[in-house]
């Protein structure tokens, strides 16, 4: 669906140049809800803006439905953009137009006849549940309602893909939930491919099927969300994952003897229902003291995380840890 190949982007500054993207390769499939997460300045916005060429990559290629968009002239580019919906953190609605007129805008420029526009507006307002706001102006709407209008507007020309740049970052948690639900519904009912940029792991956890983690212009880790969640390898990914999974309170840590060994275990899916831990205890004769634990419900799968203390002979503990790792349980020593 979307293929990003060796994309570089350099911003030329007066004194120094910023390498915002360094050799990005990405494959987004039809029907994916693809999340891109990273800290501020990681290059997320620059990357999605390369997908519709709001930003021109310095090097590299972007294919959408097999078409190399870098090869398009400006008229072809405009036509292609009509098939790529985009929503923004600050909504960017036309203040001088009503809700209906805002949704009409992309259809006007695509030369859709008036009757068809009106029909489509009704359909979209129903989809985003804003029928009663048809004639309101953006200034009369809440943030969540504005983003719904933004979504309706982005869908007006039946796009192939929807790009979302921090679409929920200006909204409160409850409104964020409702917008994420709406995006999920659109993905499921229309089969629309969605690319979501965010710095909140919650958003990824809630609706994304795949995730790419960015740091300093590079994708440091990517894959299906449950896998990345259960086995984060890069420190930045770990910090995102730990932010939402269960962390040990500092008071608890302080009370633990420094000679004891603490481990963070994380595991995904079916293993949460298998008694791996008790098997390990029986097999190696070590004792496990569970300090903290929980299971995260992540769309269709579960991610479990446990913080345990292992007590026993040094050699046996090593073997026990190896056993856990063989059983696909991520096992990490927590240094105090």
């Amino acid at each position: 669906m979307i293929e990003i190949k060796g994309v570089y982007k350099e911003f030329k500054g007066k004194s120094n140049n910023v390498e915002a993207l360094k050799n990005i390769n990405m494959h987004i499939e039809q029907g994916d809800i693809f999340g891109i997460i990273g800290l501020s300045g990681a290059g997320k916005s620059t990357l999605v803006r390369c997908i519709n060429r709001l930003e021109e990559p310095t090097k590299g290629e972007v294919f959408i439905k097999g078409k190399n968009i870098m090869a398009l002239n400006s008229a072809e580019l405009r036509e292609m953009r009509k098939k790529i919906g985009m929503i923004f953190q600050h909504f960017n609605l036309l203040n001088s137009r009503t809700v209906a007129e805002n949704i009409a805008y992309p259809m006007e420029i695509a030369k859709v006849p008036k009757e068809d526009r009106e029909k489509r507006i009704d359909e979209l307002l129903k989809l985003v549940e804003l029928e009663e706001k048809r004639e309101s102006y953006p200034s009369q709407l809440s943030g969540g309602q504005k983003q719904r209008v933004g979504i309706a507007r982005a869908l007006a020309n039946h796009p192939d893909v929807l790009l979302c740049d921090e679409a929920t970052s200006a909204l409160d948690p409850k409104t964020t939930q409702s917008i994420l639900k709406l995006l999920k519904k659109i993905n499921e009912t229309l089969g629309l491919t969605i690319v979501i940029i965010t710095h909140e792991m919650e958003v990824i956890k809630q609706i994304c099927t795949k995730v790419a983690v960015m740091e300093a212009g590079e994708v440091v880790e990517s894959g299906p969300v449950p896998k990345v969640f259960a086995h984060p390898t890069h420190p930045i990914t770990k910090s995102f994952v730990q932010n939402i999974s269960h962390d040990i309170p500092v008071e608890l840590l302080n009370r633990i003897d420094h000679n004891r060994q603490l481990f963070r275990l994380s595991f995904e899916g079916i293993k949460t229902s298998q008694p791996i831990l008790s098997r390990m205890i029986k097999k190696y004769g070590v004792e496990a003291n569970i300090l903290l634990g929980g299971i995260d419900h992540l769309q269709q799968t579960f991610i479990g995380s446990l913080i345990i203390e292992l007590i026993g002979e040094e050699g046996e503990i090593k073997k026990a840890v190896a056993f856990l790792q063989e059983s696909d349980v991520e096992c990490e020593v927590i240094s105090q």
């Binding site: 405009r78 009509k82 507007r153």
Partner: peptide, 20 residues
């Protein structure tokens, strides 16, 4: 941001001037 949204939707320069 509003202008950028219009560009992202595939507006021509003339459309941006007259409609945005």
């Amino acid at each position: 941001g509003i202008v950028e949204a219009a560009v992202a939707m595939g507006s021509s320069t003339w459309e941006i001037i007259t409609k945005v």
